[in-house]
């Protein structure tokens, strides 16, 4: 069996993975940064061309933007958002239960922090979105009836 990441459908039927985001390469972090990597929840969005990471995560890593891009935040509005080059990794498990981290270098768009309200009392905090720029490196299988999904490479 190839190393696999098996995820389950999160509340609101969202597909969420636990990923690590790190400076790429590590020398890209400014000295004195709070963290050398951050483990965050990221939503999979097959309708998104690019991936997003929230500003607070990027600030903790001490990375600096490499420019800006125009982003449609709605059909009517376009905003300039900073872009950063980082490494996004996911931990896969093989048939023996051994872990293998697969890391992909991405140029991600920075976004403000987001919290999805599942109900009045329950929040789902996610700090990123994985788009097709990430998924193109993997095989992605979604099993609707079972409510799970798998990433392999």
């Amino acid at each position: 069996m190839v190393p696999t990441y098996k995820g389950v459908r999160a509340p609101l039927d969202m597909l969420v993975v636990s990923a690590t985001v790190a400076p790429y390469p590590k020398e890209a972090a400014l000295p004195g940064s709070a963290k050398d990597r951050c483990r965050i929840l990221m939503m999979i969005d097959t309708g998104a061309r690019y991936s997003l990471v929230t500003e607070p995560v990027l600030a903790q890593l001490g990375v600096v933007s490499i420019g800006e891009t125009d982003v449609h935040t709605s059909l009517q509005s376009v905003e300039l958002r900073p872009v950063y080059r980082v490494a996004v990794g996911i931990e896969f498990q093989d048939e023996y239960g051994d872990s293998h981290v697969k890391s992909v270098t991405l140029t991600v768009i920075a976004s403000p922090p987001v919290t999805v309200m599942i109900s009045q009392n329950i929040q789902l905090r996610h700090d990123g979105l994985l788009g097709l720029d990430f998924l193109q490196h993997f095989k992605f299988a979604y099993d609707g009836p079972a409510g799970d999904f798998r990433l392999t490479w």
């Binding site: 309708g47 690019y50 768009i109």
Partner: peptide, 11 residues
């Protein structure tokens, strides 16, 4: 410059 669609839903 070409604005990026963050998600298909925005279309």
């Amino acid at each position: 410059p070409e604005p990026v669609l963050l998600s298909a839903a925005i279309a």
